[in-house]
Computed example of a mutant assay.
Amino acid sequence: MAFVIEKPTLKDIAQMRALVSDEVKRGVILERSEEEMANAIRSYHIVRDGGEIVGFCALYVYSSSLGELRSLIVKESHRGRGIASALIESIKIEARDLGLEEVLVLTYRERLFQKLGFVIIDKTLLPNHKIWADCIKCKHFPICDEIALIAKI
Results as ranks from 00 to 15, higher is better:
residue 96 R to M: 07
residue 100 L to I: 07
residue 133 A to F: 07
residue 90 S to H: 00
residue 94 E to M: 06
residue 84 A to Q: 02
residue 83 I to F: 01
residue 100 L to W: 02
residue 143 I to Q: 09
residue 112 L to Q: 08
residue 124 T to G: 07
residue 85 S to E: 14
residue 91 I to M: 07
residue 121 I to L: 07
residue 130 K to L: 15
residue 83 I to R: 02
residue 90 S to K: 00
residue 144 C to A: 08
residue 94 E to Q: 14
residue 105 V to D: 00
residue 84 A to T: 03
residue 127 P to H: 09
residue 107 T to L: 04
residue 113 F to A: 06
residue 108 Y to N: 05
residue 82 G to N: 04
residue 127 P to T: 10
residue 101 E to S: 13
residue 104 L to N: 04
residue 109 R to M: 12
residue 132 W to C: 10
residue 134 D to Q: 12
residue 115 K to M: 10
residue 97 D to N: 15
residue 67 G to N: 03
residue 66 L to G: 02
residue 141 F to E: 04
residue 129 H to V: 11
residue 118 F to E: 02
residue 139 K to N: 12
residue 118 F to A: 04
residue 145 D to H: 15
residue 112 L to E: 09
residue 132 W to R: 14
residue 76 E to A: 13
residue 122 D to H: 11
residue 97 D to V: 05
residue 128 N to D: 13
residue 134 D to N: 07
residue 122 D to C: 06
residue 86 A to C: 06
residue 102 E to K: 15
residue 124 T to K: 14
residue 133 A to R: 13
residue 91 I to R: 00
residue 99 G to W: 08
residue 144 C to Y: 01
residue 111 R to L: 08
residue 129 H to Y: 09
residue 129 H to E: 15
residue 80 G to T: 05
residue 101 E to T: 11
residue 102 E to G: 00
residue 82 G to D: 06
residue 106 L to E: 08
residue 139 K to A: 13
residue 75 K to D: 15
residue 81 R to C: 01
residue 94 E to N: 08
residue 119 V to T: 11
residue 68 E to H: 01
residue 98 L to A: 05
residue 70 R to Y: 01
residue 118 F to Y: 15
residue 79 R to G: 03
residue 127 P to Q: 09
residue 100 L to E: 07
residue 75 K to S: 14
residue 122 D to M: 05
residue 128 N to Q: 10
residue 68 E to Y: 00
residue 89 E to H: 01
residue 143 I to W: 05
residue 71 S to T: 15
residue 92 K to F: 00
residue 76 E to I: 06
residue 93 I to H: 03
residue 111 R to S: 12
residue 87 L to M: 04
residue 134 D to S: 10
residue 82 G to F: 05
residue 99 G to Q: 09
residue 104 L to R: 13
residue 82 G to H: 04
residue 90 S to V: 02
residue 70 R to W: 04
residue 130 K to H: 15
residue 73 I to Y: 02
residue 70 R to L: 08
residue 138 C to P: 04
residue 92 K to V: 15
residue 138 C to K: 05
residue 100 L to G: 04
